[in-house]
Design a binder for these strands. Structure first.
Lengths: 209, 209
DNA sequence: GTCTATAAATGGATAGAC
DNA sequence: GTCTATCCATTTATAGAC
């Protein structure tokens, strides 16, 4: 965050850039291992060897295993935030809800370990640092603002919304990983929610298979 | 499962009973530790000491750590099944849905570790044995039959139902453990679902705080 | 059925040479 | 910045005495 002092030699910039690049390389490898072995299956040894290092060398980049998790936590939240950026939020509330639901459920369904890390507390004794948590708060605020723009005033309605969307996502991961059994239900779920909360007559649901 | 041979001395029955009692004592201690340290925080050492044993003695009762998890998995599912037994399922579909939703969400919200064990796959390399899994299937079947009795015909509707209920439960655990922020939403959520799926005019929702 | 002893591996982490 | 060496705690699990 602190900007480089103008008088600082370029060599130092390069070194820092190299350092950051390696750090990111380690984090990328960590995501891969997480997907393969589960969130709690990660070991520093395996991580180090995945980037052709000895485990001890990781400590140049991360102070502890929890620090690695913390960076992954921030990483994942940043990724989710980035997915919100480019999308167009429709003026039609129902359409806006559908867009954001698809985005979120798809994101979660992609990666079970990431879901656990970002939204559950399944690692003993780990909790994100304030800096990392701030990004998660940003994500929440972004979602909340979109919902408000769609006409949701009540906090309870927002909670109902997150429950519905989180439920679809977690069931997709738990009962049909890699499939679309619950992803297929998104539009219907959103219609249900919109009918109930926005009080508008949404397009009647398809009764065809 | 095999019944005792009639000619078998009573002493053997007693010994078996004692064995089973100790086994259950260990499992009870395990639940406590799980609640304190998280599902992945369990160690056989801590478990043994919790019942005043040395870790090695546990192997008289369980062949491995995964075997302990497997028994806990069965235990948890039996408990959930037992909760279904005594309740009265109303003839009124909406009321029946409300009852079962409250039951399930309350059950899940009681214990984060149990939720992870029963419904998520967060322990590396663990999966329940066929015998234990059969109990989970029974739970599913029971829930499905109640929903069918309530007038739900479509499998997709059942999936939507489980997503909604699981979402409330998991959000309750993740965002307000020990509280009732999402539990309070159950009735409203059920009304929303009933309106949408049963197509009947459910009592209009309360707009009061 | 419980213990002691012990194995054999793995875990995260530090010190210091290069 | 990376390595070797090392530490120390912890883990799951087995063998055998009592």
């Amino acid at each position: 965050m602190a900007s480089t002092t103008p008088a600082e030699p370029r060599r130092r910039d390069r070194r820092r850039a190299r350092h950051e690049a390696t750090k990111q390389e380690i984090l990328d490898a960590a995501w891969q291992l997480l997907r393969a072995d589960g969130l709690n299956g990660l070991s520093l040894r395996a991580l180090a060897h995945a980037v052709d290092m000895e485990p001890q060398s990781l400590y140049t980049y991360f102070a502890s295993k929890h620090a690695v998790y913390d960076h992954l936590f921030a990483d994942g939240n940043r990724e989710l935030l980035a997915r919100f950026e480019p999308i167009e939020i429709s003026d039609d509330p129902h359409e806006a809800l559908r867009t954001i639901a698809r985005l979120f459920v798809t994101f979660v369904a992609e990666d079970q370990a990431r879901y656990e890390l970002l939204f559950l507390r399944t690692i003993p004794d780990f909790e994100p640092s304030p800096e990392s948590y701030a990004i998660a708060v940003e994500v929440f605020a972004k979602g909340h603002s979109v919902l408000t723009a769609a006409g949701l005033g009540d906090d309870a309605d927002f909670d109902l919304w997150t429950a519905l969307v989180a439920g679809l996502a977690s069931q997709q991961l738990a009962n049909d990983p890699g499939g679309d059994r619950y992803i297929r239900l998104i539009d219907d779920a959103v219609a249900m929610f919109a009918e109930h909360v926005l009080g508008k007559q949404a397009p009647k649901r398809d009764t065809n298979a």
